[in-house]
Amino acid sequence: MPYEPPTHTVERSLRATTGAKIVAGVDEVGRGAWAGPVTVCAAVTGLRRAPEGLTDSKLITPKRRTTLAAELEGWVTAYALGDASPQEIDELGMTAALRLAAVRALEGLPVRPDAVILDGKHDYLGGPWQVRTVIKGDQSCIAVAAASVIAKVRRDAFMAELETSAGDYAAYAFGANAGYPSPVHKAALEELGPTPHHRLSWSYLDAMPRWRHLKKVRLSAEAVALESGGQLGFDF
């Protein structure tokens, strides 16, 4: 399906209206998974022409995505990644965990952005950064699209490596499903139970009588307040 390539329109607008000289695009991957971290990438691209075929990582084939990510890592002005672990997600809730991962990514950049373009509708980041949210920013904004591809490839690679790790997690097929719901993943969970890489506050455990006693209740008052505010209250 044809699509419009991403542009620097939002970045140029931020530069013109706010005086921002350094603008970072931020996107996440892993928000709806049952297992693994949520990973956020912050990318600074300047106003250079994007590599051919850059768009939302979900619209790119896995093979092309891997090749493009390697190209982008050398093309961007700067990028950094931040994770929030399954344990942090369980304790904080997804909204706060997303912010934690995004802060880690932004603070990992060698340059401090004056403004941030955040993919999506909700600003889960907040200050001290000046944030512009853009729905489908990973399709329309070059910096966000670059962050989308890099984050997706890095997290997928991490999940695939779990299959050959000392934990022997091959039955969960993390290399194929990246920790997201799938029939194979569900069957492995029902038979073997969750691993240390699974999110234990997720509602999938409610449907698994053998393992539902492992479900964790979030203890963070901040998490409860954030989740009840109607922003990103995901519980897959």
Rank of each mutant, 00 (worst) to 15 (best):
A97K: 08
A146P: 10
Y172D: 02
W34E: 00
L162S: 05
A207V: 05
T67F: 09
S85Y: 09
G167A: 15
T7S: 15
E71M: 05
G108C: 04
K58W: 12
K216R: 15
T133I: 04
W75P: 06
V131K: 03
D83F: 03
A101F: 11
D156M: 07
M1F: 06
T95Q: 14
Y79R: 07
I150H: 02
A145M: 10
P62T: 01
L54Y: 09
D235Q: 09
K186T: 15
T195S: 15
M94T: 10
I142A: 05
W34G: 01
T45L: 10
P6N: 09
Y180F: 13
L98M: 15
A157W: 01
W34K: 07
A225M: 12
D27E: 13
G74H: 08
D27C: 12
A105Q: 07
E11V: 12
P196A: 14
R199K: 15
P181F: 06
R64H: 13
K152E: 07
P6F: 10
Q130K: 13
L232K: 13
V134P: 00
L106Y: 10
G19Y: 07
P6H: 06
V116T: 08
G137M: 11
G32T: 03
V103F: 09
V76N: 05
A187Q: 14
S148R: 03
T67D: 15
L226W: 14
P51S: 00
A207C: 01
L109I: 06
L200Q: 12
V217Y: 00
P5R: 10
R210M: 07
A43H: 08
V38H: 08
P194K: 02
H122L: 03
L68I: 09
P181L: 10
H198W: 12
L72H: 06
K63C: 01
R99C: 13
P2W: 01
E71K: 13
V217Q: 14
L125M: 07
V116Y: 10
S57C: 10
A84E: 10
E107W: 03
F234Q: 05
L162Q: 12
E11C: 03
W211P: 08
A97V: 06
Y180V: 07
D138F: 06
A170D: 14
L125C: 09
V76L: 12
V134E: 14
R64G: 05
C41N: 02
L192P: 00
P181G: 08
E107C: 04
V131P: 12
K152C: 12
D90K: 04
R199I: 07
T55A: 05
H8N: 11
T17Y: 00
A102F: 01
R48Q: 15
T133H: 02
Q139P: 00
G46A: 09
R48Y: 01
T39H: 02
P209E: 11
L219W: 00
M1A: 13
A97E: 03
L214N: 00
A223P: 07
V23I: 15
Y169I: 04
Y169D: 05
G137I: 09
G36V: 05
V23C: 03
L192M: 11
L192S: 03
G82F: 11
A147L: 10
I117T: 02
T17N: 11
V153R: 01
V153C: 03
M159E: 01
A143T: 10
R99H: 07
